[in-house]
C-alpha cells in the first residue's frame, strides 16, 4: 500500500501514480490505483479511463455499490485497476477510517494499492496517508516544492508512517549544470530521506497525460524508463540511477558547482 504525495500542487503526483501503477502492472503485479483527490479528480483522465466511470470511491464508502463494481480495469494492462474519485463531492465525504476500511478490503485482492493524494495538508491528505504502509514524496527541484515536501515529511514522521521515500521529478540536467536549478544533492541535503527516483523533464509526459496513455508504456521515453526503474525499486530490486546527463556523472559532478538555494 503506497501513497504518493507532495504537499505542493502540480509537481506530478497524479502522473507519478498513473505511471508507477502502470509500471507495476506491466511487471505482472496486480495493482489498484485510488484517486484520493475527491472533487478534483484527474487520475482517470491521465489513465485514459474517464469515460468508463460508473461508480466512484464515495459510492463504495456510502454503500451504493460493491468495491468490485467501482474498480475499473485498464484494457491495455489487465492487471491494472482504478478506483476513481467522486467529482461532485469534496474531501469531507471520506474520513481516514473510511479509507482504512476500504483498503483493508482491497488488500487481499491485489499486490499493490497506489493512492494519489491531493495537494495540501488537510483532510484529503490525511485520508490518503491513513492507510499507507509506504509513502512516496514527489518533489520538483524548486525551492518552494522542496519546502512543502519538507513539511509533508515532518507530518508523515509525526503520523509514524515514515521513513518516506523521495522522487525528484522534472529534473532538467542542463539547467542544473548552469546552476539555475537545485541539484539532487541540494534537495537531499535538506530533506535527508531515501531517494528512489530521478525523473528527467520530458515534454512527452504532458502529451501522454493528455492522451490518457501513461508514459511508461512508451519504451523509448527517458521519463518512462525512470518511472519503470522506480517501480522496480519499490518491488525491492536494486536498480542503478539513470545517467541523466549525456556527459556522465551528473550526480557526482554538480554538487560542488552549486550554492545552496535559498
Amino acid at each position: 500500500m503506497i501513497t504518493i504525495t507532495s504537499g505542493k500542487g502540480g509537481v506530478g503526483k497524479t502522473t507519478a501514480t498513473a505511471n508507477l501503477g502502470a509500471a507495476l502492472a506491466a511487471e505482472g503485479r496486480k495493482v489498484c490505483c485510488i484517486d484520493g483527490d475527491i472533487g478534483l479528480r484527474n487520475l482517470d483522465v491521465v489513465l485514459g479511463l474517464e469515460n468508463r466511470i460508473v461508480y466512484d470511491i464515495v459510492d463504495v464508502v456510502e454503500g451504493r455499490c460493491k468495491l468490485r463494481q467501482a474498480m475499473i480495469r485498464d484494457k491495455r494492462l489487465p492487471e491494472l485497476y482504478l478506483i476513481p474519485a467522486a467529482q461532485t463531492r469534496d474531501k469531507s465525504a471520506l474520513s481516514p477510517s473510511d479509507m482504512i476500511r476500504l483498503t483493508d478490503e482491497l488488500r487481499g485482492e491485489v499486490d499493490y494499492i497506489v493512492i494519489d493524494s491531493p495537494a495540501g495538508i488537510e483532510r484529503g491528505f490525511r485520508n490518503a496517508i491513513a492507510p499507507a504502509d509506504e509513502v512516496v514524496i514527489i518533489t520538483n527541484p524548486e525551492v518552494s516544492a522542496v519546502r512543502d515536501a519538507d513539511r509533508i515529511i515532518g507530518l508523515i514522521e509525526a503520523e509514524q508512517k515514515g521513513p518516506a521515500k523521495l522522487v525528484i521529478n522534472r529534473l532538467n540536467a542542463a539547467m542544473v549544470k548552469r546552476g539555475d536549478m537545485l541539484a539532487p544533492e541540494d534537495v537531499l541535503e535538506l530533506l535527508a530521506i531515501e531517494l528512489i527516483g530521478l525523473v528527467p523533464e520530458d515534454e512527452n509526459v504532458i502529451v501522454s497525460s493528455n492522451s490518457g496513455s501513461p508514459i511508461v508504456l512508451d519504451p523509448k521515453s527517458r521519463a518512462g524508463q525512470a518511472f519503470r526503474n522506480i517501480a522496480r525499486r519499490l518491488m525491492g530490486e536494486d536498480v542503478p540511477f539513470l545517467d541523466l546527463d549525456a556527459d556522465g556523472g551528473l550526480l557526482n559532478r554538480l554538487s560542488r558547482l552549486m550554492g545552496r538555494g535559498g
Binding site: R147, R151, G154, L190, A192
Partner: peptide
C-alpha cells in the same frame, strides 16, 4: 532531539536545545 522540518514549531517559556537541523519554514 530531532530535525525540525518546515511547519514545525517549538515554543517554550525557557531555553531550547535542538539536536538536529532546523529547516527553512
Amino acid at each position: 532531539r530531532r530535525t525540525l522540518r518546515s511547519g514545525s514549531r517549538v515554543e517554550y517559556p525557557g531555553h531550547v536545545t535542538i539536536i538536529g537541523d532546523v529547516n527553512p519554514g
